[in-house]
Nucleic acid binder design. Structure first.
Length: 639
RNA sequence: GGGGUGGUAGUUAAGUUGGUUAUAACGCCGGCCUGUCACGCCGGAGGCCGCGGGUUCGAGUCCCGUCCACCCCGCCA
């Protein structure tokens, strides 16, 4: 072994040799991808992170005659070493780590077009086994069908596979492009603590018991939010960090308990300034990670922007997938005007508004429709299948449908009998329904209607083949969703809580509404959305103490606790805080979407399962009583 | 916290109305093979059917519980 490591040294990686290298003596190190033994000569595909090279062990090449057609035997030929190498080749098995010295030979017309090095092979003159390997728990092929449970248990094997190697390499490129771009943009990469003070509200924190202050706890930072604002107060002007964040919430296909953000904060900026900087960053990332110029998709270098309210109205959520249409139509006003149009369910809602029980300004209950075009050609069982998919939305009670006949009448519908012809015609016109279309209705509490219809929209698109089950499908639909409400109703009547956090700056024109109609106060907050995923979000912060006070007045009882929780920030903001704002990109999600990976787990080297466990190490684990005693912590329920 | 899907050889799957010895492919082991590249041919080993109860003459199959993984809702500023 030492001869290979100390003397020979690796000359090439397994993906680099080409026809031009024929005749060179090379040294390759790698893992045995596969072995094909023909008794006499043995072929091995040798793999490293750069690719695969076929190496050949052939005893015939011990004889000078065999070299005649290759221009004579090479200087490095030693019959004994070659024979030894062939003996080794008989023993070598998959995933063994080997080193070889050999000569690059042309494969003539016998090329393998599937690999980049397919024009050549390396005839082995000398070989060594660095290490044997247990038979892997699963076959390390590119298109794997092994259960994820098993792959996660042997993550170091799974990571040997080319698809995952490609993704982690792409992450590296994203990181590098980010550092270059943001550094060039004048941002300083500054670090913030992970062990921070626990603050209630927002995401649940992981807690870390303190040994030195027994009975007290740190929290793991859910984001560097407060600290990056303090950097602005301190005059660093522009900051970024590629930083781990920790949130103890339930997991999803696009959520992990620890994840990475590209975190940015800027002084003396407005919303547009943040957008411009980030658009440039995303363009740079695409160039670096995919080699793609996003100007092909967004020629002016900008992403479209829509207000939060419009996003909710048209798509039912704040992260719409714009790769397809299927927009929602809000029928609430029409239904009110029609007095329900003969449909009892609609009439109930209309009455509540006409009687003044519900406020037309705020619309707590709504009626929405979505048209499945006739072209979708969905059968009745397929439509029922779609409805079934909505059942996991809590509170979902059913989806009213109506198939539009040639004369505009409705069939296959519980509403067909009761709806008045006039109302039917008005609704058909409002939703733009044509013959054969299926109109889906949802009505009731606004949140539920939005959730159901948002899911329906995506389900229909997948069913129609407008978007793939996962992956980008070659489309990159970015947009900014801007200016959501600053407050949302609290538990008590007439109380308000901050929709995001209490330090977001209200939209200037809405400042007078703070005292009169808080529900309608929008704020300078924004999300960056790609193909239906929120990949980033941020806000312009509230740095003006007077407005800050008025916001706290609306929040009422939250004021005291805000002082207790964020007193240091409030003090800081009064100490000479520049106007500032920022954003954080979910870098794992960006990597997932760019790579087309089906889950976040595929773009994180060592991810957790849905239960937050590590299948490989078994974490989290119980600990000794003595360790708990050091921390003054006691486990109450049996583990 | 709620809903859904799944767990059978190392891996992926099949397994009928409950019925003799639980199948297959790939992988693995042995033998043969000098141009394979999904090498080929011959032979072989390999099973707590997730775990624990129950029903039954008899359970991979039916019932109850439980664990694990995945997907969704709540939650995630």
């Amino acid at each position: 072994m030492s001869r290979f490591i100390d003397d020979l040294k690796r000359t090439h990686r397994c993906g680099s040799l080409r026809a031009a290298d024929v005749g060179k003596e090379v040294v390759l190190f790698g893992w045995v991808e596969s072995r094909r033994d023909h008794g006499g000569c043995v072929f091995i595909d040798l793999r490293d992170r750069e690719g695969i090279t076929q190496i050949v062990f052939d005893p015939a090449y011990a004889e000078a005659d065999t070299w005649a057609s290759r221009g004579g035997a090479p200087a490095g030929l030693d019959k004994e070493l070659l024979a030894k190498a062939h003996d080794l080749a008989e023993q070598i098995r998959g995933e063994w780590v080997v080193g070889i010295r050999g000569v690059v030979l042309s494969r003539g017309s016998n090329v393998n077009p599937k690999i980049a090095t397919g024009e050549i092979e390396v005839l082995v003159l000398e070989a060594t086994v660095f290490n044997k390997a247990d038979t892997p728990a699963f076959e390390l092929k590119d298109d794997i069908d092994t259960r994820e449970e098993v792959r996660l248990q042997y993550r170091y094997l799974d990571l040997r596979r080319a698809p995952l190697q490609r993704i982690l390499r792409m992450r590296h490129e994203i990181n590098r492009a980010t550092r270059n771009y943001l550094s060039d943009a004048g941002c300083l990469e500054l670090e913030t603590p992970f062990l921070v003070k626990y603050t209630p509200g927002g995401a649940r924190n992981f807690l870390v018991p303190s040994r030195l202050s027994q009975g007290k706890f740190y929290a793991l930072a859910e984001s560097p939010q407060l600290y990056k604002q303090l950097f602005m107060v301190a005059g660093f002007d522009r900051y970024f960090q590629i930083v781990k964040c920790f949130r103890d919430e339930d997991l999803r296909v696009d959520r992990q308990p620890e994840f990475t953000q590209i975190d940015v904060e800027l002084s003396f900026v407005n919303q547009d300034d943040v957008f411009t900087l980030m658009e440039g960053l995303v363009f740079a990332i695409y160039k670096a990670a995919l080699g793609q110029d996003l100007h092909d998709v967004f020629p002016d270098g900008r992403f479209p922007r829509i207000p939060f309210s419009e996003s909710m109205a048209k798509y039912g959520n704040d992260k719409p997938d714009l790769r397809f249409g299927l927009e929602h139509v809000d029928l609430t006003d029409l239904v009110i005007e029609l007095g329900g149009g003969g449909v009892p369910f609609f009439a109930e809602i209309a009455d509540r508004y006409t009687s003044g029980a519900l406020s037309r300004a705020h619309k707590p209950q709504i009626v929405k429709a979505l048209v499945i075009p006739a072209a979708a050609n969905l059968s009745r069982p397929q439509l029922e299948e779609l409805e079934k998919g909505l059942r996991d939305v809590k509170g979902f009670r059913g989806l009213a449908r109506a198939k539009v006949a040639e004369d505009g009448s409705w069939t296959q519908s519980p509403l067909a009998k009761s709806v008045t012809p006039d109302a039917r015609a008005r609704i058909n016109a409002a939703v733009g329904a044509k013959t054969g279309d299926v109109i889906c209705f949802q009505f009731g509490l606004a949140d539920l209607v939005h959730t159901v219809m948002a899911k329906l929209r995506v389900d229909v698109a997948k069913r129609m083949g407008l978007i793939p089950e996962y992956g980008h499908g070659g489309k990159w639909k970015f947009l900014w969703v801007t200016n959501p409400p600053l407050f949302e109703p609290g538990d008590g009547e007439g109380t308000w809580v901050a929709a995001h956090h209490a330090f977001t700056r209200p939209v200037d024109e809405h400042l007078p509404l703070l005292e009169t109609d808080p529900a309608r106060v929008e704020c300078y907050r924004y999300d960056l959305v790609l193909n239906g995923f929120e990949i980033g979000g941020g806000s312009i912060r509230l740095h003006d103490p007077d407005v800050q006070q008025r916001v706290f007045n609306v929040l009422g009882i939250e004021l005291e606790s805000a002082r207790e929780k964020f007193g240091f920030l409030l003090d800081a903001l009064r100490s000479g805080a520049p106007p500032h704002g920022g954003i954080a990109l979910g870098m794992d999600r960006v990597a997932m979407l760019l790579s087309g990976a089906p889950t976040l787990r595929d773009v994180i080297p060592f991810p957790k399962t849905n239960q937050g466990t590590d299948q490989m190490t078994g974490a989290p684990v119980t600990v000794d009583a003595s360790q708990l005693a050091d921390l003054a912590v006691r486990v109450v329920s049996a583990p």
